[in-house]
Design a protein around this nucleic acid. Structure first.
Lengths: 331, 331
DNA sequence: TGAAGCAATTGGAGCGCTCCAATTCACGAC
DNA sequence: GTCGTGAATTGGAGCGCTCCAATTGCTTCA
């Protein structure tokens, strides 16, 4: 930087002003500095800039599972807004385990990002609240009992209700839920399923098989079901990935979907929309959710808002071909 | 940091040593410092650390398309090795356009990362070489005419040859290629297809329809084919995503795969392996490729190697159910 | 007993930048 | 001419850390 200043015949401060394109710099000097910088191949050091200014203009994003298209699309919604406001986005992959998630958050916080978005975190609430003490945090796909942390959520109660209503409407009553274990939103979906079942007076039919939002856990859960003497007539999987895994296992076992058993997923990922799968599912406006999360975060960062904001988005049922009327008793 | 030093009754330097867990620090002091740090909620500032040490222990990774499971799996292969060597990984999403890719690289370079991995970059070679002047760079899925840049690649010549041999072996001769346009590796696949066709004396049957590695471009290409008076008996798509897009369009048009037309993809993504799709494709050991890329990069960073390393991985044909023997002339 | 040797500590300079207060400059108004 | 004013520019302190050389405290050995 000193070299550039010398080359352009100005002070280091002026170079700094030009590099940040601050106002009140004469056109002549600006051009001179830019030329000198270009000639010397000078590139500002963000580290030093951030250190000195105590601002990074960077948003950290934690993605719980990069393999899940759901999270990637949420990210799609965030990026444009960040860029438009002069922020850059840094991603720390979570690798689907709380421990690695913790490390990722730790790591990104050390970079002193201006804000943090957690997409589907598995961390304990306590840890999240702690992180939010120093840095604005927004969560997507889960909410938390703290006024410091904003959240953007799908209305799980409505979504799960849509699924159960749909299946009951088709004549099903033995509806099993494959849940998402400790994953973000899994608890809410499980609770929603149970509440909806009770609403229809199906308290005694409530049946939950454990899973973890991965394709393989869906397959495992389906295998569990198949091993039972009496299998349900419909399955409600906590997400599309699990539904896809379950579908494979069911078909391999010779069952026809939806004739023998109906299957509904959740999230309406690209996977579900594929004609070969054509999975009935619940749509969430992911891009919009990402956008809202970024919007909330920027409001916090700019200090435009201090009150907690909790967005809850209404989901929509996408009935496709994996769910159908109850026809015969399987097996 | 000074506060911690004061609290623990030692100098700032000692705190620094403890935080980096350097050798030659007495156990007593180490414990005291750690306790003080914990009590005060002290978290080292990476910015300052990196600035002072001129080292970041961070690897920047540019992912061309986060929606493509291929890239995500390459990333999976990189992470463990980086972590094991004390490096953290920062991801800059490329959003599938050269312009945003350029910005992402620019941005990550400003962070003074110790090394950069480009997964399927669309940038011009010149730009990549320029970036490599100051920072070690490894490319995945493409190679470049520079001894400064290492690369890890699939052997496209072999892979494409496998596909064409497979289809010719099934009796096909009218084999159309849906290419990847300007995407990384697209040129090599196109060239490989053409060479393989020539090898079988099918020079006159060479037929390429433009695409860009996205699902929608596969659908468009299929529509193009369907509009012709004489459609081919087999399609070789430049990747699985495009093949999936094509499959939808073909089936909607009433064609049966593989009876009426065979379809082969490339990459063997999870998508292709799904029983509902069961796409014939070419397998690349993605995780291994990611690992190799990281290994190469770390070698460069540590200065263990200065010679250029170009890994070329042998692919493998996965014949599934979308390719079959030539049966009848379609339409 | 003292010199040597090594481990454990410390002070201070400096990484590359921003920010603030101070200074210089240009120009119109009196 | 002189003063005032706002725009343009500058010097220097400091962001939070690392690194180096210097210092201290022990132990060992002649």
């Amino acid at each position: 930087m000193d070299d550039v200043a010398a080359e352009a015949g100005v002070s280091r401060s002026l170079v700094s002003l030009v590099m940040r394109n601050a106002p009140n710099v004469s056109e002549a000097r600006r051009v001179a500095v830019l030329a000198a910088a270009d000639q010397l191949g000078y590139r500002p050091n963000v580290l030093a800039r951030n250190l000195a200014s105590r601002r990074t203009f960077t948003i950290g994003v934690l993605i719980n599972d990069m393999h899940n298209a759901y999270h990637v699309e949420v990210l799609d919604g965030m990026e444009p807004l960040a860029t438009a406001n002069g922020y850059r986005v840094l991603i720390a992959p979570g690798w689907h385990s709380p421990a690695s998630e913790r490390r990722a958050v730790e790591s990104i916080l050390e970079y002193r990002v201006d804000g943090l978005i957690l997409a589907g975190p598995q961390l304990e609430s306590k840890e999240i609240v702690q992180a939010a003490e120093n840095t604005p945090v927004v969560i997507v796909g889960r909410s938390i009992r703290s006024t410091q942390v904003d959240s953007v959520n799908n209305d799980e109660a409505v979504g799960t209700r849509l699924v159960v209503d749909h299946l009951v409407g088709l004549g099903h009553s033995r509806i099993t839920h494959f849940d998402g274990g400790t994953g973000a939103g899994a608890g809410a979906r499980r609770a929603g399923y149970e509440a909806a079942m009770r609403h229809h007076g199906l308290d005694s039919e409530i049946d939950v098989v454990r899973g973890d939002f991965t394709e393989s856990s869906g397959a495992t859960a389906a295998a569990t079901i198949l091993g039972r003497p009496c299998i349900p007539t419909a399955i409600f999987a906590a997400n599309d990935l699990m539904a896809a895994g379950a579908l494979d296992t069911l078909e391999e076992a010779g069952l026809h979907v939806p004739e023998d058993i109906s299957l509904v997923g959740y999230d309406n990922t690209a996977l579900a929309a594929m004609p070969q799968l054509s999975l009935s599912t619940v749509h969430q406006p992911r891009i919009e959710m990402g956008r809202l999360a970024m919007e909330s975060l920027l409001e916090r960062i700019d200090g435009r808002r201090t009150k907690c904001r909790r967005e809850v988005i209404a989901p929509q049922l996408m009935a496709r071909t994996t769910s159908g009327p109850l026809r015969k008793q399987p097996r």
